[in-house]
Amino acid sequence: MANLEVEYCGVKFKNPIVTASGTFGFGYEYNEYVSLNEYGGFGAKGLTRQPRGGNKAPRIAETPSGILNSVGLQNPGVEVFADVIMPDLAEKFDTNVIANMSGNTIEEYAEMAEILSDTDVAVIEMNISCPNVKHGGLAFGTNAAVVEELTKEVKKKCKKPLVVKLSPNVTSVTDIAKAAEAGGADGVSLINTLLGMRIDINTRRPILANNTGGLSGPAVKPVAVRMVHEVYNAVKIPIIGMGGVMSGDDVIEFMIAGARLVALGTGMFVKPDLILDVKRDILAYMDRFGIEDINDIVGTLELN
């Protein structure tokens, strides 16, 4: 039997497939289609220090092979997650939970890391790249010096592996990845969404109430794969790759580029049971090439 188990930042994942924060709620909805236990882990909805209502609707617009969203981090707040949601998830499911947090200040990030460290989450993902909120988020993620400082301060309070989520909306993603590594990050995840806009030509107004939103789906996959490849060559910490995964072949592509874990996201809106197809495809690929251990393909890209 081929081995799908992967170790990421010292945590065992039964397979390399996780989900992207913000596409998966807290897992309960998709658990009605496929047991959460099928996933190596899942990325829970992005949390903030206080509950947030999010942006006005419309929050979603279709684009060629993708979507724009501008949810704006609607969430119940880190304390409800830590006190109610995470204990329930830990009791009901046998899978790794990747918590995701966004802050307005360095202190807020550190405080949230402290709160989440006392829960059963496997990994904490630090979102410094949300394009849909006015404060924090992307403002942190585009400046290497700030990323290093933020990571360093959060690490002091964080007792779980800390993964920094990188934005593609930067001149050099490798500079930011190196800054996260220098600040002590245990891993990086990429890519968050690409900032975009769609206009209704009849009203001459943006379709999204927030005017702009984050692009995801197959449209962004080549950008994501390129960035994972660049970051893999720039840092030693392990990568969670994501962006437009629609199949097991896409997962393999990200892993060859250098990702140790790969997240499904927007694709699940179309196929809620995507994980099942993905796992079947991965096993078929491994069988075809005689690969016994999925870890053997990570970062095996050979350039032309």
Binding site: G53, G54, Q74, F269, P272
Partner: peptide
């Protein structure tokens, strides 16, 4: 009616405004 994503409550895109505050506002 609203522009919709996942259709099952996970992605939080197809919201309507309610009289609640905080997380429940939408």
């Amino acid at each position: 009616e609203q522009r919709m994503g996942c259709g099952i409550g996970a992605c939080l895109t197809c919201v309507c405004e309610t009289k609640d505050e905080g997380m429940g506002k939408y």
